[in-house]
Design a protein around this nucleic acid. Structure first.
Lengths: 209, 209
DNA sequence: GCGGTGGTCTAATCTAGATTAGAAGAAGTG
DNA sequence: CACTTCTTCTAATCTAGATTAGACCACCGC
């Protein structure tokens, strides 16, 4: 029976090493997920990255799917947390807050380990039953954005002719797809963020030609 | 030995039936690719969709990878062709042409069978060696867009501060990601196209607040 | 209405990769 | 140190799914 993922067994002491290994496995899973996708993620690869033997994984997770599920959940949670934190410190016009969210989303996606990236790239490929279990988390995250857009709209900063729901998904798509092509050699992260911010804000913005 | 994919064996007569089955298999492969991704695409599923027995596929292709490769190639080619055709009839300002390209890309992606969709969603997951063989096609397609952006820029219609390369990828991402979320019940195709056009054009546009 | 060729099927085979069994190495406890 | 519990390993096992072998049927030209 796998030990319950003690939420507080982080630092040192009781089961600290175990917790570290477990985390290493989840990280490795995210790493492999990013490059191979859901179906392509082999436990043997995960094990190699995590520096364990494949069967060791079963000490922590009862199946491949359970591991993948956790990796995805962690990624979604992380993306959400980081964006929320960034927004918490941001005060300014709704459009400014949108700019902040764009920056946070992109930097999470592109640099903050493979978690968010793995989650976002993987979710659409999950078998329906598993995906269903993450749908709430997806919605929660999107709702943050929906709120930002709604605020901006209420403040009259957003083009009235745009369908807010559709526009939001188009924007998120622009951000998410960066995970497919961006790499540090292709320009600085800051450059991408700046470009994306301008595009998003000008694209949504109320004052038009 | 598989019969060479006679380029003209379409209509009737010699090998017409064969050609039709072959096409059915490729279509089925695209169909499965869209929903399962590269690693998740099983020959048995493709066979079922194509209404054949799995081994029949080997009459046309010498391996699973070869089939997938063709399906992807067809998809990329189709996307490119449809956009080119749309542009051929479009005259107007560079920004207008960009609008046309956005509409063509989206309608290809979202409705024109599963080919383009399969190709675009699948390419990033392909094993490097296979992906390399499509890289040229990808570039060719992107180059069409690069040209559009360059023209608009030369005409002074695009914000000088945007990095054209990065901006283009962000835009294409917005379009490509629609394949992940859009479905006919979520609003009309026209609605998505209109929203995307406005976002893209206003986002890139030179006159700013 | 016979021999050939194209096209498809059923019944193996073969292999990668998930999962399980059971042994054995640490690490903490008395 | 001897004992227990946690953690990981090596050596099976089991299964899905790609691929191959070889038979079978339909049509075509004669």
């Amino acid at each position: 029976m796998p030990p319950p993922p003690t939420p507080s067994s982080e630092g040192t002491g009781r089961g600290a090493k175990s917790a570290r290994t477990r985390r290493r496995v989840v990280d490795a899973a995210a790493h492999v997920l990013v490059r191979r996708g859901y179906a392509g993620t082999r436990l043997s690869d995960v094990a190699e990255v995590a520096q364990v033997q494949a069967p060791a994984i079963y000490y922590y997770f009862s199946s491949r799917d359970e591991l993948i599920e956790e990796a995805v959940a962690v990624g979604l949670a992380r993306a959400r947390t980081l964006v929320e934190e960034a927004l918490a410190e941001a005060n300014g016009s709704p459009l400014d807050r949108l700019r902040v969210a764009v920056a946070a989303h992109l930097s999470t996606l592109l640099t903050h380990s493979d978690h968010a990236r793995g989650a976002i790239r993987t979710v659409p490929q999950l078998p329906e039953s598993m995906r269903a279990r993450h749908r709430q988390a997806e919605r929660d995250y999107i709702d943050i954005w929906r709120g930002l857009v709604a605020d901006a709209r209420a403040a009259g900063e957003i083009d009235r002719d745009l369908e807010p729901g559709v526009a939001l998904m188009v924007v998120l798509g622009a951000l998410n797809w960066t995970a497919e092509w961006w790499d540090p050699e292709r320009g600085s992260l800051e450059g991408v963020i700046a470009t994306a911010q301008r595009l998003v804000v000008d694209g949504l913005s109320a004052d038009r030609s």
